[in-house]
Amino acid sequence: MKMQNSSTISEKCAFLADYASWLWGCGATCARITKNTARIARALGIDCELTVMPSHVELSLAGADGADAAVYTRRTGHSGISFDINARLSRLSWEIADGLVDFPEAVRRFDEIKRTRPTGQWEVLLLVGPANAAFCRLFGGDWAAMLTVLVATLAGYPLKQTMIADGRDLRLTFLCAAFFSAAISAGAWIFGWGDTPDIALATSVLYLIPGVPYINAVSDLMAKHYLCAFSRFMDACVLTACLSAGLCAGMFILGLEKF
């Protein structure tokens, strides 16, 4: 009986640790990770503590009711930000807390959520091009600048997708994508397209800015998860530095000094 209780508790703790790791990997804030995990732990009758670290999550089981004390560690996945998975995992936590699903069904649904497909590459490409062009407009660009930015984004974003799919380092990916996007949009300066070529150049790389990591970093700061806040902030800063370097390299090679 003791072993059966222990193995069941062990399975539940492993599930919790996996759940927390997936939530971190999909870009949830630390507050959400700890809240959701605590909610599920309460529903499953497990007394545990969750430690959220920049690259790992650790679930510490207190060791009562015949179960041994244990620590379950999971490496956080870097599968990319997914608000879809975030929403599904949050809904799963409420379904477990409200008793709508039992543990085996929760595990089955969790496995299904893990297989959630990301937004289609073509769909993202078709949406991000006009988005960056709209961004150019918000900064005061004219229609020629918007068209330039649209083309530059449609050239740089597939490069980013390809390099990420090939498993290239994300920093190198950002640098290359920013270089080519900036270089193509610099055509507005070189060939005299439109009246706002400087805005075209400045906004051509904005699709690469890691906005969600910055927002998450400040959210974690407010929730007093300073370690994770700093980690996310540094990740975002490094990526911003890489895209700036790509932008500067593009401008330097083309002989433009528009700072």
Binding site: A155, L159, F180, I184, I190, L254, G255
Partner: peptide
């Protein structure tokens, strides 16, 4: 300015060739 134009076309060509090579 001519040099900048040539460099620009070279960069565009490199990117296009990379996509074609990848395909």
């Amino acid at each position: 300015m001519v040099q900048a134009e040539i460099t620009w076309w070279a960069i565009v060509a490199v990117l296009l060739l990379a996509f074609i090579f990848r395909a």
